[in-house]
Design a protein around this nucleic acid. Structure first.
Lengths: 282, 282
DNA sequence: TTTGGACATGAGAAATCCTCATGTTTGGGG
DNA sequence: CCCCAAACATGAGGATTTCTCATGTCCAAA
C-alpha cells in the first residue's frame, strides 16, 4: 500500500517486455533472484495481483498487462528524454572495446576535438558487446566480421595480429618470452603460435583485456599478441617492437564503426564516423 | 557516464516542477540535502550541466529545462498507470486519520464489504493531511471546517467532543483522572477543561494519535477527549463511559469525505461516499 | 519417474540513499 | 559597502534498500 520503488516498476516493465524473469535480469544486469524479489515487493506495495501463475512461465493478469504496457511507455520516454538531452548538448556517446579505446582512440582524441570543438565524445568501455538498441550510446566500435542485423556498420581496419614486446627483449629467443594473453581473446596465442610454428604452451600471464596485456609487454614483461593497427604508433615511437611482423594468420575479423541507422541522422555522429574512417585510412 | 538512478531523475523532475530544492524535498519526504546530493549525482552520471547558477535560486539550463519537462511527463504517466490499474481492480484507496480509521471505519468494514463485494478498500493513515492531487488516493476522510479549494467535500458528522474513560473509573473525581492527550490535537484538553470549568493542567500522558489515547482510556489509564461520533458504539457496548456528556464546547470542525471532483466519476468511489453518508446518519 | 529449467525464498553482503553537522554563496537591507 | 539570512553544497557515517548466493519448489517433457 506504500509507494512502489522505481526499481520494482522497472523490473516489472522489463519482465513483461521480455516475457521472463531471466531475460529481464539480463537486461537489467542483475540476477533473476533480484527480479523475483522486486516483483514480489511490487505486488505487495500495490496490493494488486499482477501474475496469474506463480511458477515457471509466469503469465500476467489483465491488469498487469495494461500496467506493464503503460510503464514500458513511460520508461521509454525517460530514455528518450536523456538521449535527446545529449543530442542538444552535442554529445556522442561511444561504446568501445578497451583495447581500441586506450591504444588507438584516446591518443587521438585531442586531434578530434580540435577539429570538432562543438562535439563532445563520451567514451565508455565494457567487456560485453553492447546491444545498441536500448543502450545509452549513439554508436559503438565493435570487433567482428560485420553483418550485424539492423545495424549500420562501417569497417575501420582489418585485423592484423602481430607479436610485440619491449624492444629491449628482442635479443631473447622469441619463443622463450613469457606470453601475455587477454582473457577476452583466448584464441590469440594458439592461432599465432600455430601459424609461426611455435610450440603451443599456455600463456604465462592472463590479463583482463588486450590493452592491459600490451601495457605489460611495453613494460618488458613478455610478448603480447595484438592487432598491428592499434599499436602502429607505439611501434613507430619505439615503445614496442614487432617480433613476428607478418604471422600468416587468416582472420576475418576487424574493427567496425556501428550505429543504429536512425542515429546516423545526427550530424555529430556522422562527423565522428567520417573522422574515424579518415584517420584509419591514414 | 553511467546510467542515472531513478531517484535522481525523480528528484530532478520535482525540483524543476517546484522551482526549488526545498520544495522538492518536501514533496519527496526527504531533506534538501538529499535532493542536493541526488542532483549532483545526476549531473555527474549524465555528464551534463543542468543548472546554470549553483547558489541559492538555482536556474536550469536550456537542456535541463527540456529534460525536466519530459521527465515530469514520464513520471506523471507512471502515476497515472498505477492509478488506472487500481481502477481496473475496483480498488478505492482511502487516506484517513488514524482515529477515524481504527475507531469508526475498521469496525464497519465487513458491513461495507458484504454490501459491495466487488469493491476493495485500501486504507492508509498518516499524520499529515494529504494533498489529494498527486497523492495515490482516490479519496480521503478529513477533519476540519470544509471549504477546501478544488475538492469535493461531503460532511459526515459534526464534532462533539466528550470526555471518556473506562467505566470502572467513574467513581473517581473526574477532575483528578490522568489526562490522556493526543499530540496531533493539543487544543482538545484546554478547550474542554475551560468549558467544564476544570483546572487547565498539562496532560499526564501524550500519545501520538487520538486513537491511541482512547485505547489507553479504555484500558483504564485515565480520561481522553474524543469526538462522540467515533466512540458511540464503544459507549453503547460499555467499553467506555462518558464523564462529561455534553461539554459546552463550540466547534466548527467535523469529519468530511473529500475527493477530487474527477475521482467521483468512478462508480466505486461514489458507492463508498454514499455508504459513508448513510452509515453516519444512522 | 526422472530430470532440467525457471522461479521463490531467506539470510547476509553490498550498494545506495539519507541525515546531520557544517561550510559556502547570493541577494538585499542597513 | 558590509553584513545577514536564506538557500544550497559537502563530507562522513548511518540507515535502507537492493542484490547475491545457496537452496528449495514447482512444472513440463522425456
Amino acid at each position: 500500500m506504500s509507494k512502489p520503488s522505481f526499481r520494482a516498476l522497472r523490473a516489472f516493465a522489463e519482465t513483461s517486455r521480455t516475457g521472463s524473469l531471466a531475460a529481464a535480469s539480463r537486461v537489467l544486469n542483475v540476477t533473476p533472484s533480484a527480479i523475483s524479489h522486486l516483483l514480489r515487493e511490487l505486488e505487495q506495495s500495490l496490493a494488486l495481483t499482477l501474475f496469474i501463475t506463480r511458477g515457471p512461465n509466469a503469465r500476467l493478469t489483465q491488469i498487469g498487462e495494461k500496467l506493464a504496457h503503460r510503464l514500458v511507455t513511460a520508461f521509454d520516454t525517460i530514455d528518450a528524454a536523456i538521449t535527446e538531452a545529449h543530442h542538444q548538448a552535442g554529445d556522442v556517446r561511444v561504446s568501445a572495446l578497451s583495447s581500441f579505446l586506450t591504444l588507438w582512440l584516446v591518443p587521438r582524441l585531442t586531434r578530434f576535438q580540435s577539429r570538432h570543438p562543438d562535439t563532445r565524445l563520451l567514451l565508455s568501455t565494457g567487456i560485453r558487446p553492447v546491444d545498441l538498441s536500448g543502450e545509452p550510446y549513439e554508436c559503438a566500435i565493435r570487433w567482428g566480421r560485420g553483418g550485424w542485423p539492423g545495424l549500420d556498420a562501417t569497417p575501420l581496419f582489418h585485423d592484423r595480429p602481430v607479436v610485440v614486446t619491449n624492444p629491449r627483449l628482442l635479443q631473447t629467443n622469441p619463443r622463450d618470452l613469457p606470453r601475455l594473453a587477454a582473457g577476452t581473446r583466448p584464441d590469440d596465442w594458439p592461432r599465432v603460435a600455430a601459424a609461426l610454428g611455435w610450440p603451443d604452451v599456455p600463456p604465462t600471464l592472463t590479463f583482463e583485456t588486450r590493452a592491459l596485456a600490451v601495457q605489460a609487454a611495453t613494460a618488458g614483461m613478455g610478448a603480447a599478441v595484438v592487432d598491428r593497427n592499434l599499436v602502429a604508433d607505439m611501434i613507430a615511437n619505439g615503445l614496442l617492437a614487432e617480433i613476428a611482423p607478418n604471422p600468416p594468420v587468416h582472420t576475418a575479423e576487424g574493427h567496425w564503426f556501428v550505429a543504429l541507422p536512425d542515429r546516423l541522422r545526427i550530424r555529430q555522429v556522422r562527423q565522428f564516423r567520417d573522422w574515424l574512417v579518415r584517420e584509419t585510412h591514414q
